[in-house]
């Protein structure tokens, strides 16, 4: 018990005025604003696909982009909430990306069935995965760096949400940049490899976000 009193005395001696962390919604919106600016800048440099406006008329393409945006927004807010030990007492928000992900899988399933006759496969393949990886690296590093300043008690899930946020930015960028409509190509070289990388976020979270 003496040790406990000593520890309390020593910790309370260290206490200095401290600015509380911002509200997770504010934090998440800030990340979203930065990632959107990054997306806008890179799209203005590399350009958008030439048929973008015509594509938005197609319900499948619009639904896919909206579902990706849903994942992008939900994962940013989820990562922000997960950086607090008690999830800022907003548990539902922390698990919102699961719902968005299910919606996205549904949209892709619908796109698969609607792809009749199948759109021709592009000439390239793994270059898309590499492009998304390169694009997402910067947001991934940035968000892990910020998350390390907080105190997550759900390390694996935090890591997954952080990578989901970073890679949904990359997936959105490539979808708006590359004029490819083959669902087989999208699933094989855009989304499935990304899902694999995102699962690594579980391990990364456990390793990097320890406090």
């Amino acid at each position: 018990m003496d040790n406990m009193d000593d520890l309390i005395a020593s910790l309370s001696k260290e206490v200095t005025p401290l600015k509380p962390a911002p509200h997770p919604l504010r934090l998440g919106l800030k990340w979203l604003a930065i990632a959107t600016a990054y997306l806008a800048v890179t799209l203005s440099i590399f350009g958008v696909r030439p048929d973008l406006m015509q594509q938005f008329i197609k319900p499948v393409f619009s639904a896919e982009i909206m579902a990706l945006c849903g994942i992008f927004i939900a994962s940013a807010l989820s990562a922000a909430v997960l950086s607090f030990p008690d999830l800022h007492q907003k548990r539902a928000l922390a698990f919102a990306p699961l719902l968005m992900f299910a919606l996205f899988v549904g949209v892709m399933g619908f796109a698969w069935h609607a792809d009749q006759p199948p759109a021709p496969l592009p000439m390239h393949s793994f270059e898309c995965t590499l492009s998304i990886l390169m694009f997402s690296l910067l947001p991934a590093l940035a968000i892990f760096n910020v998350l390390r300043r907080y105190a997550s008690t759900h390390l694996s899930y935090s890591g997954i949400a952080a990578l989901l946020f970073a890679f949904s930015t990359g997936a959105l960028w490539l979808r708006l940049y590359e004029a490819t409509d083959s669902v087989v190509h999208l699933i094989e070289w855009h989304y499935l490899p990304i899902m694999g990388v995102i699962l690594v976020g579980g391990w990364l979270g456990k390793t990097v976000l320890k406090w």
């Binding site: 962390a21 030990p85 406090w211």
Partner: peptide, 21 residues
């Protein structure tokens, strides 16, 4: 736990219940 509370005290803003945190 006390040391962890000390390290993470910036994640508590005093506006939500303390015990769940």
């Amino acid at each position: 736990i006390l040391i962890s509370i000390h390290k993470a005290r910036h994640t508590y803003d005093g506006e939500r219940p303390y015990l769940p945190w």
